[in-house]
Nucleic acid binder design. Structure first.
Lengths: 330, 330
DNA sequence: TCTTGTATGTCAATCGTTTGACATATAAAA
DNA sequence: TTTTATATGTCAAACGATTGACATACAAGA
């Protein structure tokens, strides 16, 4: 059986209370006792049962992390950075992949409650606001609107939409379309769309929006995009994310459109992955490191003072353009 | 405060014991009592504290999942599938990103023990065998050799190495090099190298191996690969993984080598991501779904019968070639 | 009527750890 | 010598749920 505190006490020849005191550094302790206890813990490979400790009121040091997918490089990098930061502060993460599935998300929320996590970082929502209100746990959200009481961290989607459009315009495009994946009405990334529309208007151009269904498999999306490229009169495409942009590049190649000569393309997200393995793709870079730092800082504030009313609950970080060959002038 | 069992009892007008009986479906219960209790749980949004339940001897339904990275699409897809399967069976995962860091891996193992996880799926190791032996928990490993007592699930790296080489040979290559990332001597993916070497010998060709350092940032690797392509006399490259293959394609383009005319390339892993977004890349496809199913099945067997000696502890699943333009004949 | 099965309640021990109350003992400081 | 800080021990209650032992009560069936 796993060693328990009492075993350590016996091994070290001290009382259980003393062992607990050593572990929690509580009360008066001589160096020699500490050493004895540590030696015994080492010898038995003892680990205090965190279930028992947490049950007694201590934190669990577990954070629930809910995102719609981890195979999307953007989320993968986000989660990896979150994991890293949290690990450095002594926290572990329970990874929840909502898979855009209402039931799964609900089940996970329940499980997280049952597991007494200290807090939740959420970047997915299919559920109504009520379920998020009911949880009664510190939550911060990435780029999703929940309730007034839940802080939202996001990058400047509106400015990003404008920047992307401007970039194509600067590269000489005049027939710029937006290619997006349809999603809920209140999804903050819809701001990218608005940014595009406003910028087009500013430039005196007609906004043109085409949507592919978010849930379609990529092969289907590719087909739709090929049709889109063939049917429309266009010389530039603002994509709602980099993966969609990759499909555009692929579609363009398959139907014999040269990028950037015939068509210019800009994506959105600018993950390290894309920047490394598709350096030619122009894109709007979200500041992942800053986003993660802010998410975690905000979450810890919520954990420390759960009741505190938020003066402002929406934090927006700036984005920047990363220029590649897909928006070269010629 | 969070509602507890006693609150539910009061709300439902029954005894705490009865509530517990309803939750665990233990002993005689009338339908009306069950309904009352369920209504009360609903009303209070009650979730049994899993810490307390687990402390009492029940399983935690937590599985530790340790991999070196999640931003690599291969691991991302593996983890996503693991998460999915485990969720369907009522388990949650604690995601551990070892980041090829000994200390981090050790800390995570400790934490997992402390959190009383029911088992571990590990695909990383920097640590010695002893630390894995000490844990005393059901473990299965993906593609890593730990101890005789820990089952290993992998795909057929040796056959994969041969297949990849044969594919280039069939496409007309005669100067086939292997480009790999250096790693530990006992790493099972070294079997890919051996497969390559044996196949070359079989074909009467001279094996040529070039290594880039695993920890180098991609930009540095890219440089090294460019030099490699320029210095060596070659017409085909077997890459140890798809990401390396992407760098080769990029390097080739930058130095003006046409693929597949001047140079043919084949990768390794064949994730859905690569197959979708780089369909031109030929690669060896690992059977992710089967690997995950087997990992989980084996883990559950270990959990059920931890003491059972293993007749065979290495399970190897077959791979297949996915042909793309990078190994077209012409 | 006497069993027997069903339904619920009370009580207490248990899981492993934390922590406060209290006792005691030694050593150093006043 | 008396105080005080230091060091350790014993004991027991708590955290929230589970579960067995035991008591009680009511119904239906023999």
């Amino acid at each position: 059986m796993k060693p328990k505190l009492a075993d350590v006490a016996q091994e070290a020849g001290v009382s259980p209370t003393t062992v607990s005191r050593v572990i929690n550094n509580h009360g008066y302790l001589s160096q020699s006792t500490k050493d004895k206890v540590h030696a015994a813990m080492e010898k038995l490979n003892y680990q205090p049962n965190s279930l028992a400790r947490s049950l007694h009121g201590k934190q669990t040091n577990l954070i629930g992390v809910i995102f719609p997918s981890i195979t999307n490089p953007f989320y993968a990098e986000l989660i990896q950075k979150i994991e890293n930061q949290l690990f450095n502060q002594g926290y572990k993460i329970i990874l929840c992949n909502s898979a855009d599935n209402k039931e799964k998300e609900r089940d996970y929320l329940r499980m997280l409650m049952a597991n007494q996590v200290d807090g939740i970082i959420a970047g997915a929502h299919n559920l109504g606001i009520e379920e998020y209100q009911k949880i009664g746990l510190p939550i911060v959200s990435f780029d999703r609107q929940y309730t007034e009481n839940i802080p939202i961290i996001s990058s400047d989607n509106y400015a990003g939409g404008m920047l992307a459009t401007q970039e194509l315009y600067n590269a000489g495009c005049r027939m710029i379309h937006l290619l997006g994946t349809s999603s809920q009405a209140d999804h903050p990334t819809n701001q990218r769309l608005t940014g595009y529309q406003d910028k087009m208007q500013q430039l005196g151009l007609e906004p043109q929006v085409f949507s592919v269904d978010f849930v379609d498999p990529p092969a289907v999306k590719l087909l739709e995009i090929k049709q889109f490229l063939q049917q429309e009169d266009l010389d530039g495409v603002v994509c709602s994310d980099d993966l969609t942009a990759l499909l555009v590049l692929q579609a363009a190649q398959e139907i014999g459109l040269n990028v950037p000569t015939d068509l210019k393309v800009i994506g959105y997200d600018g993950t390290e992955f894309i920047r490394t393995y598709y350096p030619q793709l122009s894109t709007i870079v979200q500041p992942l490191n800053d986003l993660v730092a802010l998410l975690i800082k905000t979450l810890f504030e919520r954990i420390k003072q759960p009741e505190k009313q938020l003066a402002d609950n929406h934090f927006v970080l700036p984005v920047e353009v990363k220029r590649g060959k897909t928006t070269s002038k010629m």
